[in-house]
Design a protein around this nucleic acid. Structure first.
Lengths: 145, 145
DNA sequence: ATATTTGCAGACAAAATACTCTTAATTCTT
DNA sequence: AAGAATTAAGAGTATTTTGTCTGCAAATAT
């Protein structure tokens, strides 16, 4: 079940890394992160750029530059992040890929799938990056292979 | 949420189409299906070939040839079909794509994601193609755009 | 038998995704 | 003011996925 794309995985990992740090206000050097997480620097840069454009991160250039949370990690839900990384329709897509699938013109999987999908959405909507980050730190969970 | 690939979508749609037919024993002409479902003939052929190789379908060549269920649609679970289409590890993959993620070396999302994943697996495991097909037929649900 | 219809198999092409490289813009340091 | 460090932006490359084409193999019909 590849729920998210490779760039989605990378973005999520990077932000979990940031959120697992004690200091939530801190700016993170992208090069350091790409080294630690073993993700291509330029590729990660691009992914984080998107998150900056979408108002989840802020960035500064120059020496000691980097990226940091714009909102606090408590206010960023997993759902919001995933939507930013994978597209706004992430939680609305038809399992069979049929355009315009919905209550009016449901596919055979629609009702069934909507239940599962909404469940996931609720879960992701009520989970903050801070939660996941704190857990990561306290339990020393790994973000690398 | 792109849970399944394009070829997975096509395979699922084709088999739902077959399962929604009254006659479960029938053989279906691939060309007719590709026309009705608006899927590339050769591409669909390839997808169904895989299902034939995996023992879900059987096929016959020649005039009036086609593909039909090997087991009855009652015995084919959605989980089995999706595994055949998307790979056996479909319900086991790490959300962050980390190899070897598991109880011993969990990623930050592991426990969380495992819950959601297993839920989906249970749902898919207890849903048969026949169920979905019957529903499709009785409610005239659409399998095309 | 021969021709026709169908699925099988593999090569090829196009599109999407993943990744790399180069240059520009910004910030800091001295 | 000059230079170094860092992110932004965009072009370019590689890999994977998706889709097409051509010929072969099997079954049927005549």
């Amino acid at each position: 079940m590849r729920v998210i794309s490779k760039s989605g995985e990378y973005g999520l990992r990077a932000l979990l890394h940031m959120a697992s740090n004690q200091d939530n206000e801190r700016f993170f050097n992208i090069r350091e992160m790409s080294d630690e997480l073993d993700i291509s620097f330029h590729f990660l840069t691009k992914i984080l750029q998107v998150l900056t454009q979408k108002g989840i991160l802020q960035s500064y250039r120059g020496p000691n530059g980097g990226v940091g949370f714009l909102k606090s990690a408590e206010e960023i839900t997993l759902a919001e992040l995933v939507r930013a990384l994978e597209g706004d329709d992430f939680f609305d897509k038809c399992l069979l890929g049929l355009p315009g699938c919905g209550e009016r013109q449901p596919c055979p999987m629609h009702a069934y799938w909507m239940g599962i999908r909404n469940n996931l959405k609720d879960e992701f909507e009520t989970t903050s990056l801070a939660d996941l980050g704190k857990n990561t730190r306290l339990q020393h969970l790994r973000l690398i292979a």
